[in-house]
Nucleic acid binder design. Structure first.
Lengths: 110, 110
DNA sequence: GGCTTGCATCGTCTGTTGACGATAAAGAAA
DNA sequence: TTTCTTTATCGTCAACAGACGATGCAAGCC
């Protein structure tokens, strides 16, 4: 994952309502539709739909049409892929910092 | 970390420039000031200062005044703490989903 | 004391986000 | 067919984010 992709994913997840939606979807993994989420959230249906779209565009959830309703499901694989990428990214930063600090210490006379 | 705290942290990190700033700070862990960052970034000094403030408020970096300049450093402990919290959060979601799916399967007749 | 440097902050502007109600489309049910 | 349900999308509005230049302030240096 590129830096921009990580940033985009963070942005998508960086909203309390969207995290809550992920929790709601996870709690009833099978057959959870937009209305079900709206019932839990004290927000307008259109607002919830927008949040779902953000999560969908980020690839964190998936949609399955079933008759007139759309069932949403969390893509846990994507979530863990993201946490993995993030961890690697930050680890890399730490490693760079360490090697940089080492390089800048006074060297033994050559 | 609460859901809101995780969301706030994500939000702070959910901007490509701020991730880049983290990289820049990590690359020269000792004595990197606002101007140093600005030199790397093709952005106005005021803009960089704002981004630094966001990262500072999120607790991802720390500031050390040194004469007239302020040195910034990445708080890798906080970063790894955050990735840990996030991982636990998402793992929890996955676990809930699994147990929920199990519970909703047809039960053997009682 | 003046001058320079480094930087935070202010004010402003523009674009985006997040909320809402209204509406339209599409499948299910009558 | 008509009606109901579900949901995405549109338009709007207020609030926020991110960019900038200008300014002020504090610490070093002459």
């Amino acid at each position: 994952m590129s830096e921009d992709e990580i940033a985009a994913m963070m942005r998508a997840l960086g909203h309390p309502v969207r995290l809550e939606i992920l929790r709601i979807l996870s709690a009833r993994a099978d057959s959870c539709c937009c209305n079900d989420v709206t019932d839990c959230l004290d927000l307008a249906q259109s607002t919830v739909s927008q949040h779902l779209k953000v999560l969908l565009d980020a690839g964190v959830i998936e949609r399955h049409a079933q008759g007139t309703r759309n069932n949403y499901r969390v893509r846990h694989d994507r979530l863990s892929g993201f946490t993995g990428a993030m961890e690697r990214y930050f680890d890399q930063l730490g490693t760079d910092a360490a090697s940089c600090a080492r390089a800048s210490r006074p060297q033994p006379a050559a």
